[in-house]
């Protein structure tokens, strides 16, 4: 295949304008939904559940992002720490360059650059953080969600060293002192433990959708990616999607529709 990354993304950028564009990519930037799905999810396991999320970056506005972040952070008592380098965040918005640093040099289209990207824990199928945790404080549930057990976390921060997405936060301060709103139904955390997005497993266990999905009003899809009939599987298959750092083999479960 004589098509390099730069060229590909240029074509891809064009395709956003015209809404069509079928590519056959052999090596690098996986972009076509069905191929991404084939690489990241593979055949899937029948009868098993693997929760995944698809964020429609085409339709997501800045207000949407704010609302979604607010909904998550408010519900989970995420502290609002003014120092950005020591902040705690479960979900946050960032630029294309920061979300996909390895694609940033490939000259993505202006339109793609100006969009907002919601970043959160990818709930990798093959999570590095789980591998390195010395006490199994972070572990993968049978449905693929990577959970953090704050009761057990020793605060060694190895998971933060290992996570290639910077999705984890450490409590550098007493988090309760920085709560902007208090949700009395949900715990906060203590100083010296690591926390992150948990795909709202406490809500999934009760048959509800995650807060961000609810707040996104249809702009974020969520479902069981092992189910070929599910809406999430369908929208991924039918669109151009990106995942963050697919080359690392972590198999992230958060897809970005571009």
């Amino acid at each position: 295949m004589a098509i390099d990354r730069r060229k590909f993304l240029k074509i891809a950028g064009l395709s956003f304008l015209f809404g069509t564009g079928v590519f056959s990519l052999e090596e690098f930037v996986l972009c076509r939904g069905d191929e991404v799905l084939a690489q990241v999810v593979g055949e899937g396991k029948k009868g098993k559940v693997r929760w995944a999320m698809a964020i429609d970056t085409r339709r997501l506005t800045e207000e949407d992002c704010k609302r979604i972040i607010e909904a998550c952070h408010r519900a989970h008592n995420v502290p609002d720490i003014p120092e950005p380098t020591k902040a705690v965040r479960w979900i946050w918005e960032d630029t294309f360059e920061h979300a996909f640093p390895e694609l940033a040099e490939e000259d993505p289209s202006e339109e793609l650059r100006n969009r907002k990207y919601l970043l959160l824990c990818n709930h990798c199928e093959n999570p590095v953080c789980v591998r390195v945790c010395p006490v199994q404080a972070t572990f993968q549930r049978p449905d693929g969600i990577v959970v953090q057990d704050y009761h057990r976390c020793i605060g060694c921060k190895f998971c933060m060293t290992a996570c290639p997405y910077g999705s984890r936060s450490y409590n550098f301060f007493h988090p309760k002192e920085y709560l902007k709103h208090v949700n009395p139904e949900y715990p906060a955390r203590t100083m010296g433990v690591v926390e992150k997005c948990i795909f709202c497993y406490e809500r999934l266990d009760q048959g509800k959708l995650p807060y961000c999905v609810e707040a996104a009003k249809g702009k974020i899809y969520f479902g069981n990616i092992y189910d070929p009939e599910a809406e999430i599987t369908r929208v991924i298959k039918e669109n151009l999607v990106l995942v963050r750092k697919p080359q690392l083999g972590t198999k992230p479960m958060v897809f970005y529709i571009v």
Binding site: C133, P134, V135, Q136, A137, R152, C153, I154, G155, C156, K157, Y170, N171, T190, M191, G192, V193, V194
Partner: peptide, 15 residues
């Protein structure tokens, strides 16, 4: 370690 009092978790839950 952020939670030094839990250091023996490393032995309690060998991984």
């Amino acid at each position: 370690m952020g939670q030094p009092q839990r250091v023996f978790n490393v032995l309690l839950y060998p991984t």
